[in-house]
Simulated assay, not measured.
Amino acid sequence: MSEFPALAQEEFRRLCEFLYRRTGMIFTEAKRYYVERRVVERMLATGSDSFPDYFARLRADAQGEIELFVNTFTVNETYFYREDHQLKCLTSDLLGSRIRTRRSDAALRIWSVPCSTGEEPYSIALWLLENWALVDDYEIEIVGSDIDTRVLGLAREGIFGKRSLMRLSPYLIEKYFVSIDAERWQIIADLRESIRFSQVNIVEPRQTRPHGRFDIIFCRNVLIYFDDASRRIAAENLYENLLPGGFICLGHSESMSRISPLFDVSRFEDAIVYQRPDGGAHADR
């Protein structure tokens, strides 16, 4: 793997505990090779002579090392219109539910967290423009957040390759993207400027609370990397970031019912989502 020796068992344990406290992500011996590769990457980048030397730098957060270290552990598998049945549910049911009892001048807020390199929040914007007849009648705020500052920079830049765009029609690519070369396209400036991107750790309430409350949260395919305790903390934080009656969409392999009793299950034709109770009676849909 490198000139550095493998981590001793106690070193590996201390490092995983540090990562868990910072991110909520849990790594066991089964992931040792994955973890050690990333440690070696950062040791080489920082010129550290040994793991104790690097770990001291990490704990001291020398030159922002914690942020750089955490960035190496994030998984950024994404593309446009991923799990688009939830996007269909967004325009066929969720937004209708949210606007039923509110003024038309009240902003609709949608949060994509984690947003990775931006495909999800941009997908939400594209889907609304193309599929929601009332899109021009409401102020819509879309926020994309992630713990990884590197991918947030890429999201703001909005440049994507063929794989990211593989589920978009030529019509949508022509309408909403500008070709850079044969392999890359940049989403148009109007859309880049319409989405706000921010850093957030969803197990840290001091970071989630300032984002305010949302009508709908997309939090897909991240809770599977947490242990039960971190999932509950994340669920409680997301609950506090939802308006009463608001909805949260998880990944297809995730179930809020197994994580927290705070949410009601809402069953729609296109998707099963989870709802913060609004204080009134509302049955399973």
Rank of each mutant, 00 (worst) to 15 (best):
residue 157 E to C: 09
residue 183 E to R: 14
residue 21 R to G: 12
residue 161 G to V: 11
residue 186 Q to F: 07
residue 21 R to Q: 11
residue 28 T to A: 10
residue 158 G to T: 04
residue 170 P to Q: 10
residue 55 F to K: 11
residue 31 K to H: 09
residue 136 D to H: 14
residue 150 R to C: 02
residue 285 R to E: 10
residue 1 M to H: 12
residue 203 V to M: 10
residue 15 L to S: 00
residue 141 E to A: 02
residue 95 L to R: 06
residue 24 G to Q: 03
residue 115 C to M: 03
residue 134 L to C: 05
residue 186 Q to G: 05
residue 223 L to K: 00
residue 133 A to T: 14
residue 152 L to D: 00
residue 20 Y to N: 07
residue 261 P to S: 12
residue 227 D to H: 01
residue 105 D to C: 11
residue 187 I to R: 08
residue 97 S to C: 05
residue 171 Y to I: 03
residue 285 R to M: 02
residue 230 S to V: 05
residue 123 S to Y: 03
residue 273 V to I: 13
residue 20 Y to I: 08
residue 108 L to M: 06
residue 161 G to H: 06
residue 159 I to P: 05
residue 171 Y to H: 13
residue 86 Q to A: 15
residue 180 I to A: 08
residue 47 G to I: 04
residue 220 R to Y: 03
residue 78 T to I: 11
residue 160 F to Y: 15
residue 13 R to A: 12
residue 281 A to G: 10
residue 138 Y to R: 15
residue 207 Q to P: 06
residue 278 D to N: 14
residue 284 D to L: 14
residue 67 E to D: 13
residue 55 F to C: 08
residue 226 F to P: 06
residue 263 F to G: 00
residue 236 E to L: 05
residue 119 E to G: 03
residue 92 S to E: 14
residue 60 A to R: 15
residue 22 R to Y: 08
residue 113 V to N: 06
residue 145 S to L: 00
residue 283 A to W: 13
residue 102 R to V: 07
residue 92 S to Q: 13
residue 110 I to L: 12
residue 212 G to T: 02
residue 6 A to P: 04
residue 44 L to N: 09
residue 117 T to E: 10
residue 229 A to Y: 07
residue 172 L to P: 01
residue 281 A to W: 14
residue 215 D to R: 08
residue 234 A to W: 01
residue 33 Y to L: 11
residue 234 A to G: 13
residue 4 F to N: 02
residue 105 D to Q: 11
residue 176 Y to A: 05
residue 67 E to F: 07
residue 8 A to F: 09
residue 243 L to I: 03
residue 219 C to A: 14
residue 78 T to M: 06
residue 278 D to A: 14
residue 171 Y to L: 12
residue 104 S to N: 07
residue 86 Q to H: 15
residue 141 E to C: 05
residue 98 R to K: 13
residue 198 S to Q: 13
residue 197 F to I: 03
residue 78 T to D: 07
residue 108 L to W: 02
residue 284 D to H: 08
residue 22 R to Q: 12
residue 267 R to T: 07
residue 5 P to V: 09
residue 165 L to Y: 06
residue 181 D to G: 01
residue 89 C to I: 00
residue 126 L to H: 10
residue 267 R to P: 03
residue 247 F to R: 01
residue 26 I to W: 13
residue 265 V to L: 15
residue 33 Y to I: 08
residue 192 R to E: 04
residue 134 L to M: 13
residue 245 G to F: 11
residue 73 F to K: 08
residue 82 R to C: 12
residue 169 S to G: 11
residue 203 V to N: 08
residue 198 S to N: 12
residue 54 Y to N: 01
residue 177 F to S: 08
residue 252 H to S: 14
residue 127 W to Y: 15
residue 258 R to V: 04
residue 84 D to R: 09
residue 191 L to H: 00
residue 255 S to Y: 07
residue 195 I to H: 03
residue 280 G to M: 09
residue 124 I to G: 01
residue 253 S to C: 03
residue 40 V to T: 07
residue 76 N to E: 06
residue 3 E to P: 00
